[in-house]
Amino acid sequence: MDSTQAKEILLLYREGIDRPDDPEFAEALALAKRDPELGDWLQQEQAAQKVLRAKFKEIGVPEGLKEQILSERRVHTNLGFRKKAAFAVAAIALALLLLSIFTTLDLFPNREDKHFSGFRTRMVRTAVGLYPKMDLETSDLSRIHDFLAQRGHGDYALPSPLARTAGTGCKVLTWQGHPVSMVCLNSGGTTPQTKPDLFLFVMNENFVPDPSAANPSEIVQVSTLATLGWKQNGKLYLLGALGTSAREIQNSVAANLKQL
């Protein structure tokens, strides 16, 4: 190692910080002890470095920086809290809204009663509460039958009292994932004629575990509708009647079914 190489190494040596017995520094320091010129240079260099270090550490810190950092932290914390709080409020509001919608529309299929009574309740709500837009609107019962037949739901039989009424329209619904035909009729006792007061729902009887619960000798009031259920040729029927005229027809249907 010559003097120039030793200077390069000793330039990095910080007395009191770096270990003098570090092999890299030890050899250069030993040479500085033997070489007066190098030793003098090292002494000057170390003194200059010490002053320079002090100059760096003299860098003044602006007044209030610490307080500003702490207050920024509080602002961020508050902002974070506010954001989280706002998010939580929005999430709760959304959850309540969805719950309300699902409850109103009864869109909890897995929690719904899968028996005949559940089917009946749901269909009444559909007829009275929602009354969805019909897939076909017509008074012609043949057209309604053909329309449903084209969609694979034409294998239903209208009891004769119903066959004498006028149709208003039809729609294919789903209940628990199963198709349900909805035929809407007007008994003739309400105006206008396009407004239904009889609602017939038809689906396969094996879509409920208790099709025998559809007892034609029993009319059950559900909400504003009088309901009559029966099963025939593998189909489950539910007839809802609204108002006196419709109920008279419903009674006729029940009477006919008793004769079967």
Binding site: E8, L11, Q44, K50, V51, K55, F56
Partner: peptide, 24 residues
Amino acid sequence: SQVEAELPTLSPARVNQLDSPQVL
């Protein structure tokens, strides 16, 4: 690569003449 062969030597007195902003 490596430090220049001839390193300028800086005296403590010279550094003392400077203030912190000048060093920076």
